[in-house]
Design a protein around this nucleic acid. Sequence first.
DNA 1: TAGACTATGTTTAGTAA
DNA 2: TTTACTAAACATAGTCT
Lengths: 152, 152
Amino acid sequence: MDAANQQQQQETRRTSKGRQKIEIKRVEKESNRYVTFSKRKNGLFKKATELSTLCGAETAVIIFSEHRKLFSCGQPDVDQVLDRYLAETERVPNNFPSLIKNNVENQLANKQEYAESLKRLEEEQTVAKMIGSMNNMNGGGFWWDLPIDNME
Amino acid sequence: MDAANQQQQQETRRTSKGRQKIEIKRVEKESNRYVTFSKRKNGLFKKATELSTLCGAETAVIIFSEHRKLFSCGQPDVDQVLDRYLAETERVPNNFPSLIKNNVENQLANKQEYAESLKRLEEEQTVAKMIGSMNNMNGGGFWWDLPIDNME
DNA sequence: TAGACTATGTTTAGTAA
DNA sequence: TTTACTAAACATAGTCT
């Protein structure tokens, strides 16, 4: 870079208006929105990490960009924090039932011999509850929808 | 407040050292740590909300204080973002079997027939092991993707 | 725990690469 | 999408209430 360019750049820098105040509403200009997203995402992760370090807290930050791309950050680990959150809120994730497809009643009818063999089950109450629950769920495959031979 | 007090306060203010630089490591003084936690937690939530608004992103922030108290913040909603995260990562929460049990109580009444049929079931060991296997899942995959051997 | 306060440390808008 | 740059906006440490 020659002296003239350097001079040019110097003057360009001098004209910077510095950080400008903005309203907290959608950034309309796409290029600005992307830059803002990238910067603030990093800022958020940094802040979350600092909070953990400074105060001994466990944190999880999950971000989906406007294009649904996933970014996450957690201390000690996103999934660990999520497990604790789900246990605390006693919440069943929506996507669990969506992964189960077959109807339990049909399964039971077709697996009569298997059902016959499951007598005197000590945990019948628990299993009954689980099955009752699963029967109300839509979607996915079932754990007993497996070749019976392999399960014996 | 009279003029003398105002004067006093003015002078008190003058002695403030303002924000001091700190190292990012555990704040040892308990009272300071609590104050820092509260302030930074609020700051983090604010930043996450702003990111969502500015850039059309979906965010979830989950924090457990050092005393395990839960705080969370999400746009549009923590659970919605979590569902998307779990779907994206194809992860089943570690505690999902207990979640199922906890959520199933209300459904049991309508499913008496299943409980009845299960009373005749044999092979309690097989089922017990399956349940045990499900309880031992550590994430990273679906329990129904386990090798059949693990379910015996 | 949650506010208020001020001086200062930190983040970031606008821009270009 | 990320980085570099500057100056202004913003967050917050320390302290008291």
